[in-house]
Design a protein around this nucleic acid. Structure first.
Lengths: 237, 237
DNA sequence: CGTGTTTTTGAGCCAGATCAAGTACGGTGG
DNA sequence: CCACCGTACTTGATCTGGCTCAAAAACACG
């Protein structure tokens, strides 16, 4: 297997000790000595929107920490359609499952330009046993993934199409700065929310018409977070 | 806090070394010496259907390994209704989140008569750091919870009401012996599948009428697993 | 500037929600 | 033992949000 496949761009060897998002990242708890222990360097890679980080069933030899961007994990259904089971962004780890199994459980595809650090599973396994802080960080990543999955079920798979769209916009805005977010294709939007592409499109159009969201450039939206939150939280009351 | 609350029955101190489901359980990897290390004994508790194991927001001081039975994790929505986010059974661990946070994230309620072992979080934390097998087992539990959540999204929150019901029946039969399962109230059924109670009821009635499932006693169903599987897997083709 | 792709919009239909009765069941008390 | 009651389940009638099928519009790209 080549280090640099057609679908990715190697952008350098990571300098973890001086990482600018280090405090929130998997290797936060490591000491200089630990890094000397790593036999292979940590590579930084870059993916354009639409490029594949890994495919379900691939040999799981690496974990990835997302530095910037947005990645979808998809599960393909027997009929060929996809259901997106998670969206991951800054400081999330993908591929954690290969600390246990041998292969990736989902396909991971970038939805925006995305930068990641690639970590060898073997090193993470070895180091996390002795290092209580890394152990804790790894477990925190599991917890985070599970919490996200719970939110996915309660917020993005429940309620009307309109509400689901709003909750997703709010969710996206949490991981960006300010009251805006950048969205992706209507097809992916539908696959996230368990709706058809048409319904996803209609819901967006409706929100735009009502002035609840504004699109200043292609798929770049801004909105009044408080107002939107009020809409989806006010049920009965 | 009392060791035995009104909603639970203490049934003895667990003898983990001779546990009959030990190979599949959290403390599988522990040695005799480790058990001597535990300051408090491991209690076994029993819950009747409908009783609460813990509530969302409670202080998370214990993990529970399920020995027999079925437990729902629910998330209450602002309007007072519930959405069930996971169903757990034999060898599953609930309350894992309190290895990181301080409180339980969901309410855990028994759907059937349920036996559990109660493990002090502090011990699991302490032991899992030094013991590579326990570390691995704990992580495997996270993985399992996450895989279940993924199935929940793709199988139980997607497709027609009928298909969802069938997938749930198949899911339940996996964790029981043979081609049968015991079900629970229609209200909970709806909360699992994201459907109304009425639709859940109608779907069950329809399956009965079509002879695809048989109810030999109250909420005890048997069916042809292969036939049901064919129904939900055959989409397009 | 034409061609393929994605998004939007329209019209009609249907699955599931809602509202409303009716029925079965388990428990309780006379 | 039976009448009564509360709860859960079932069934019916109607309504509607989202799906389906189809076409137009906007856009991306060579």
């Amino acid at each position: 297997m080549n280090r640099i496949t057609s679908a990715e761009a190697w952008t350098g060897v990571a300098d973890c000790l001086n990482c600018n998002i280090r405090q929130s990242v998997l290797f936060a708890g490591l000491e200089e000595a630990d890094f000397r222990d790593l036999h292979r360097p940590i590579d930084q890679l870059q993916f354009a929107a639409g490029e594949t980080v890994y495919r379900a069933g691939d040999d799981g030899v690496s974990l990835f920490t997302i530095r910037t961007g947005l990645v979808k994990l998809t599960h393909y259904l027997p009929d060929g359609s996809q259901r997106i089971v998670r969206l991951l962004s800054k400081t999330d780890v993908i591929g954690l499952e290969c600390m246990l199994g041998n292969v990736y459980q989902h396909s991971a595809i970038a939805l925006q330009a995305t930068e990641v650090c690639r970590l060898p599973v073997s090193s993470v396994k070895r180091l996390s046993l002795g290092n209580s802080r890394l152990f804790h960080t790894v477990m925190a990543q599991w917890y985070r993934a599970l919490s996200d999955a719970d939110r996915w079920i309660t917020e993005l798979s429940t309620g009307t199409a309109r509400d689901r769209v709003i909750r997703l916009l709010l969710w996206l805005s949490e991981r960006e700065t300010g009251n805006s977010c950048s969205l992706f294709s209507r097809e992916d939007l539908g696959a996230v929310l368990g709706l058809t592409t048409e319904t996803a499109s209609r819901s967006m159009a409706e929100l735009k018409r009502q002035g609840l969201i504004r699109e200043h450039s292609l798929n770049q939206f801004s909105f009044d977070i408080v107002a939107l939150r009020r809409i989806v939280e006010t049920r009965v009351g």
